[in-house]
Write a protein that binds this DNA or RNA. Structure first.
Lengths: 162, 162
DNA sequence: GCCAGATCGATGACATGTCAACGAAAGCGT
DNA sequence: ACGCTTTCGTTGACATGTCATCGATCTGGC
């Protein structure tokens, strides 16, 4: 705990750059997405994950885990998206507690018309600015960090114990 | 607008990895910070930026710009931090509209005792997992993206016009 | 000096995210 | 079959972030 190892100049540059990029990229992508497609980033992510499944549907639990969201957050968000007609909830056949989130035709329409523009924005502001080597490095490094953090989901524990 | 250029396998890997890392790193760093220091990440960032100035104080406007926050957000956040005794607001000498955010002794104490642990966490979960070459690449790439996005601040425009 | 327009920061209404608690239903050991 | 424990998803209270608006002040052109 003593003599903390501060970040040296290069490490600091990387860390600050990362945080700044993160913020600016978010703002810009969210801005364009809202303007061009009327969706927020969370909306887009939900629709995107759903649309990648065979039938455009997933157990709420499964979707929350994939997105690294709490079930509570997802449940609240789905309520709003449901009101906009982008998804519906159906009862789950094999588990009476569960609910299945289903993409509506309007939801599929929304993601399909939003995707090209969004991917273009991701290219324009990030991918196309990188060399092939940087893209590979970014892929390698991020996956290493993710593995290290043990890609498991959140959802608060009710553990006793210290 | 036709024939969108989707991400190829490597690009997709980098993009997904980035987003996943982003989320997991955030969760973990926020968790440790809250547990060890009783601060949220926004709290930490505010205190950190303030503590890097000569007198631990900044114009609200200036602080908001550095953090890429809206003034509204910062104003709300400061109100809460002020109630916890971490910062105070003082009148600005050369501009009667302005206010100066000042680090209190308790605020300085908070950031100084939180920093070593936070830096250690950043090392443990990110920096120390990367090779020197990756750190340099990350620094280069993030700064390029930031420059491209034109590091300017948000604050909604009231423009007419398309 | 004076006025038009810009900037500063605060505020309230609202959208979104978090957290703890809950009822219902499964799982599991006996 | 029976309880005990876990999991599922929802809910309400609350924390946080966004957006539009406001009054006060500053700035620049005249």
């Amino acid at each position: 705990m003593d003599a903390p190892r501060w970040l040296d100049e290069r490490e600091d540059r990387a860390w600050r750059g990362y945080r700044r990029m993160r913020r600016l990229l978010d703002l810009e992508l969210a801005r364009e997405l809202a303007q061009d497609a009327g969706l927020s980033e969370p909306d887009y992510d939900v629709l995107s994950d759903l649309s990648e499944t065979p039938h455009g549907q997933l157990r709420l639990r499964e979707l929350a885990d994939r997105m690294l969201w709490s079930r509570s957050r997802l449940s609240h968000h789905l309520t709003r998206m449901q009101q906009r007609g982008l998804v519906t909830r159906e009862e789950c056949a094999d588990d009476a507690r569960g609910s299945v989130v289903v993409l509506t035709p309007a939801g599929r329409q929304a993601i399909e018309s939003a995707a090209p523009g969004h991917v273009a924005a991701v290219r324009r502001h990030l991918i196309d600015l990188l060399t092939p080597a940087e893209i590979d490095a970014l892929g390698a490094l991020t996956h290493r960090v993710v593995d290290h953090l043990g890609g498991r989901a959140p959802q608060p524990r009710h553990d006793a114990e210290v």
